[in-house]
Write a protein that binds this DNA or RNA. Structure first.
Lengths: 157, 157
DNA sequence: GTCGCTGCAAAGTCTTTGCAGAGAG
DNA sequence: CTCTCTGCAAAGACTTTGCAGCGAC
């Protein structure tokens, strides 16, 4: 539970990189590196879930109760990270957005309408085709996303 | 401006069908066919835009000021139509949802991040591939959506 | 007539903002 | 020291709900 950035496995190395990118970004914009910002980045990194601002806030409150991080700071930091393309927000019909680290490799989402679980996947063929379509329509493609809705393996039972 | 369902072109024929489906749906659920509900359906049908509840409400207020339709009714009707799969809601990062008639044939969306315009498109190859992916992951696919974000032809200039 | 529907306004959510004190550089 | 951040609480934006009267059937 107290697994901060002390151990040195693959994930930690990636995180060090991420953190360093974040610091660079902050410096470049004359912004400050605060403990709240670090904790938010780290929590996003260590979560395998897609987090809402609220769930992220709870997570942080549980893990670092003495920081007493405000929800407003979570929102502000997420907006900052999103503007800098370090996180991506997802809005799947449900109310509110969910966030995930954008540093992960690109992937799409398969959403179970029964249990709400989200499975990630990538398909090269679709990726390629998306570029072709954008080109054909004279559109400069900066990003894209795809969702498949349905009932997952577990819920089908 | 007073183009209601009096003329008899292709679009009107489709609309008659849509309206009849709507009435059937209402009857089946012991719900009533009201002028407000008709006007909402018709406005969705006659708009080529993707409408927010608010823009739909304005549209209706302009067109039928004497009806004095409340925004709450718009929300309630959209929820009803969405539950019955007659309209689809889109939520593209921006705040709030946009609605479009689901009766249209399936298509995906290309969203310009400069001007906010939405272009629709369909690609058979991607459609096919999506089914394959869902099958491969043991997922029953009920629906799917795809968005390409970028800068449109016009804004590239 | 009955029972669902509507407009209104109030209440809920979720998110953003203003401000004064705290803290990074 | 300076200037940005933060938590708090208030304000905003968007959506839902309760209610009394209205209207479809």
């Amino acid at each position: 539970m107290r697994k901060v950035s002390t151990d040195f496995n693959d994930k930690t190395i990636e995180y060090e990189q991420l953190l360093s990118d974040f610091k660079t970004l902050l410096k470049k914009n004359n912004l400050k590196f605060t403990i709240q910002r670090e904790v938010i980045l780290e929590s996003l990194y260590n979560s395998d879930e897609h987090l809402t601002p609220e769930s992220l806030h709870h997570l942080i409150q549980d893990k670092f109760p003495n920081l007493n991080t405000g929800i407003a700071t979570v929102y502000r930091t997420l907006a900052l990270l999103e503007d800098s393309n370090m996180v991506t927000s997802l809005s799947f019909g449900a109310q509110g957005k969910k966030y995930e680290l954008g540093a992960k490799e690109h992937h799409d989402h398969m959403i179970c309408t029964e249990c709400g679980s989200i499975t990630e996947f990538v398909d090269e063929e679709i990726e390629k085709r998306q570029h072709q379509i954008a080109d054909a329509l004279g559109f400069y493609m900066s990003d894209h996303s795809m969702q498949i809705y349905g009932i997952c393996k577990n819920c089908k039972k």
